[in-house]
Nucleic acid binder design. Structure first.
Lengths: 199, 199
DNA sequence: CGCTTTTTCTACCATTTGGTAAGTCTTGGT
DNA sequence: ACCAAGACTTACCAAATGGTAGAAAAAGCG
């Protein structure tokens, strides 16, 4: 019927939507299929099991996030404000694909079946970010603190803000764009004041 | 058998634990009952339905949190650092009962069945905090920004940090106590720098 | 003790769930 | 035209799920 891997993509998209809102356990394959105008077995054909579907969705999301971040970390122009770039990049993802961070939030919960997989996936990226920060600290361009701590803190803040955006959006609450800009400013301010060495 | 409402308390405790780790949908009444050495119908006797159980657990948790916070907001000694008191208080709750904030995180997800209830429960507290902040802004003791925004931001940061603590703890990761102190400092720093008017 | 009320249990049930088996239909290559 | 591989479906199933009905203890009380 569908010549290309079109249905597979559609399933992934809807699954992301469902997982990040009603959660993994709250998502039934039947409902998912019905929402797609498809039979449940089609889903199980493309992804072996429900768990397999979750893994696929997760891999996809992590890939998008990683690419978006690596682009910034890679950037060879050494003089730009890397922190601002990072924040801007993450917020762009959060605004364009809030569901993605919603999935992270869902999956990073203690007791989540996919938590270890997420850890493996994000591991390299985290390590790289940490070693970069440590390098900056050594060079005196960043205040010396526990890099991992700062990273985790920033991460949770961003995800928290992003999911809040989504919550507000689903709740039909008014403006979303302007506040998010403000939040970016706040987060930036936060990171700068807690990272810049000159006190 | 149990003369007082002892079993009811036990059910509530285990339910909180289960809801905040494996989630609402991930919790089955049978498993819950088995973990308590009890039959499922006993649970349904005390709380009419699974949803009723969730509501009860939620009400309990919100009550604890509210009391802990109101104590600070009420504090009549006007010269203490209120922000530090707040942060300290919240972190105490997060450390002593991390499951409680885990529940908040679970329940405040978009699409959660208990989200509206949570909103109603927390509403008054939020409004009070906001009006307090606005008062401080008027008096020039706090930089003028969107109070609601700051509150939501701080809230998500705290819950994020708290759930991270729990994640680390379940992952068996080393030290927890010392880092949490550092985090409290960081959060404090964050709030101060983004709230104090003197720039 | 006897009676009532509260608490807990056994026995079922309808529905939903993820998953298996095996078929049908479509498409592309030769 | 034929056939093999891919894509999607119908038919089913065993287990788990939240919930109902009613019996059986247990506790409180005169």
């Amino acid at each position: 019927m569908a010549p290309r891997g079109e249905t597979k993509e559609r399933i992934l998209a809807k699954a992301l939507e469902s997982f990040s809102t009603v959660g993994y356990d709250g998502t039934s394959l039947d409902d998912l299929a019905e929402a797609l105008g498809i039979r449940k077995q089609t889903i199980l054909y493309h992804f072996v099991s429900k768990r397999g579907l979750l893994n696929a969705v997760l891999d996809d999301s992590v890939k998008v996030l990683t690419e978006s971040l690596e682009e910034v970390l890679d950037a060879s122009n050494p003089h730009r404000d890397r922190i601002e770039d990072l924040v801007r990049s993450v917020f762009r993802v959060a605004l364009e694909q809030p569901l993605l961070l919603g999935l992270l939030r869902e999956v990073s919960r203690p007791g989540s079946p996919a938590a270890p997989r997420l850890k493996n996936q994000m591991g390299p990226l985290m390590e790289r970010a940490i070693s970069w920060m440590e390098g900056e600290m050594e060079a005196g361009r960043m205040r010396k603190t526990d890099a991992q701590l700062v990273l985790l803190s920033a991460y949770s803040t961003v995800v928290g803000l992003a999911t809040e955006i989504e919550i507000l959006r689903t709740a039909g609450v008014e403006r979303v764009l302007r506040p998010s800009a403000q939040r970016r400013q706040e987060l930036l301010h936060f990171l700068r004041t807690s990272l810049t060495p000159s006190e």
